[in-house]
Amino acid sequence: MLVRDCMTRHPILISPKTPAAEAQRIMAENRIRHLPVAGSGKRLLGLITRQRLAMKPDDLASLNVWEITRRLSNLIAEKIMLPAARVRTIEPEKTVERAASLMTDYRIGCLPVMEENVVVGIITETDLLRAFQVMLGIQGEGVRVTVNMPDKRGEFAKLMRVIVDRNWGVVGVGTFPNARRDGYYFAVVKISNVTLDEVRDAIGGIESQEITDIRTIV
């Protein structure tokens, strides 16, 4: 899965001259937390986030009521945005994992997706969560089974062979290391159109693997 497959295309963009209040309203109304600022030809100029809209109390403390009003009314996107040079971006052809690691590494909530300086989309935590759901096949019905297996060549193939032999359909697959036991990892497989018992009988019989969790999801 690549960034272009799970990004949101045609994101809401604002111009650098949009008042900050307007930007805030747009974010609230559309329930979004990131607002790329773009100039002509959709070239990225900056990014506005919730934090950017929040004002430091220290700044305000020194101002009286009138000064605050004036200051607010003069506040436009250009002045409060994070300038483009400091915005982390990603290209549509990168993998989702890469996007996810960028976001966790820098502790950021979104990455504008750029193609030659032009904003073509945006990928946010929400998009990644959605991708995660799709990968594990959450949308479909079926039996979800978690298998604990040794980290060796051919182990996963054994599991797959059982499924292939029975001509079952897999709607989602995911693997992650077992944190409690070194050298082992979990494989989560979601299979459609089968009963819980059939799966338990088939997979439970695999040598050196054990079912740690099995449930039917509708």
């Binding site: 986030t49 820098y106 950021i108 935590e125």
Partner: peptide
């Protein structure tokens, strides 16, 4: 920059 997921605005 932005902290982790803000559940309420999901």
């Amino acid at each position: 920059m932005e902290a982790l997921l803000d559940q309420t605005t999901m």
